[in-house]
Design a protein around this nucleic acid. Structure first.
Lengths: 215, 215
DNA sequence: TAAGTTAAACTAAACGGTTGGTAGAAAGGT
DNA sequence: ACCTTTCTACCAACCGTTTAGTTTAACTTA
């Protein structure tokens, strides 16, 4: 558990591999041997640096959550108008989910099991995201551009929508090839989808007569 | 593998127990012994009736999905106005998620693992839900009451929102007691939350000047 | 020489699945 | 009416394998 310079790189390799495998298989499905294997280190090295499987998992949780939250917070700090901030929030959240493909599966599984393994400290970081949305919406309401809506529900609809969109990818593909059913969004590149989620959310919160219509 | 009358009841007990345990622990985390135990039968009895762990899991998947989809389809068949249908859809979906607490965790975990264990047949049933939303929205657009939005995105935002709201329950509770942060919706009884999700969605899709404002 | 790394063998426990057999009701023969 | 066979549902105990985690002894690099 020391941090030389060689150590740091090894730990990073292990973490990256662990994110991948935990996201593919979940905690119980993940094999420590597989993680060590993908990281290109001996299992003993993994135990030497990290500890046990639980510690490794907590490390992964901390990583994916702080990554996402940091990205969002720093991106929003440069903006001030609530409309812009809300739009940016959606875009950054979606972008972050795309950049960090392990996040959605890991978080969903963690929440699905009652967040038993989410340490308080990390739960707090997670809560900052909701705080962020709350501030944006309250500011917009004060300025008279947003109607009164529950920040929590806006949060879950954005996050839930983005995450579910990503996670249902493979099912939609199967439905397309095997039943000829195409559920794509028109202009279905990443960018187009994000923009449309943005639009839906803005329509839902903007006071009437305050913004350009959608479509 | 026969189905007498005593059998049917036993199989039902096993299924109920399996839904509970799979939803708590996921496929890999679930112990066949634990499922048999909770069902009050010997493990061999479980294998006698059902087959192996995979077959048991597929049975559970089929159960939770068909339950939900059937409930939605039958509830919508009596309505005709697209606005009413969309409102009802949100309400029924949320209600179904509340009645069947195993659904959200099981589906999320299944999607998180790339839907590897979702048989085509069940994926098709799942697809019917998206079809339903698509029909409602297209009808509304034809009638000139809805703006043009992607049905898929409306679907994922409703489902994702409802599911994520439920799954984050325990984290929010922890944040409340340990950091004094309260993220509740105002008037936070089941009913109030569902109504507000309904409102957000209606705001997002209604053509301007077509409905009463929200708040 | 210290910290870092490795391969390999090992242990203890856990787990999915199987085996061999039993209770009890129904069916059949006489 | 009395055995006897058959069939379904069920179980306790067991088997073979997998898995997390450890240990040891040797090698490497700063």
């Amino acid at each position: 558990m020391v941090s030389g310079d060689r150590s740091r790189e090894t730990i990073e390799r292990i973490t990256r591999a662990a994110v991948e495998i935990f996201s593919e298989k979940g905690f119980d499905g993940a094999r420590v041997d597989a993680i060590a294997g993908r990281a290109g280190v001996n299992k003993a090295t993994l135990y030497y640096h990290i500890g046990d499987k639980d510690a490794l998992y907590r490390m992964v949780l901390r990583n994916v959550i702080t990554d996402t939250v940091d990205q969002i917070e720093s991106a929003l700090s440069s903006l001030s108008a609530p409309e812009e901030k809300l739009r940016a929030y959606v875009r950054i959240f979606a972008g972050s989910a795309a950049d960090n493909p392990g996040m959605a599966p890991i978080m969903m599984r963690e929440l699905a099991s009652g967040s038993k393994n989410l340490p308080d400290e990390i739960a707090l970081i997670y809560g900052r995201t909701i705080d962020l949305v709350t501030e944006i919406l309250e500011e917009g309401i004060r300025q008279g551009v947003f109607i009164k809506v529950s920040p929590l529900l806006i949060y879950v609809m954005v996050a839930g929508g983005v995450v579910l969109y990503r996670l249902t990818d493979s099912v939609r593909e199967r439905l397309a090839v095997e039943a000829g059913k195409h559920y794509d969004v028109e202009g279905a590149e990443e960018e187009g989808i994000i923009r449309e989620i943005e639009t839906i959310i803005m329509n839902a919160v903007m006071k009437r007569g305050m913004n350009g219509e959608a479509e």
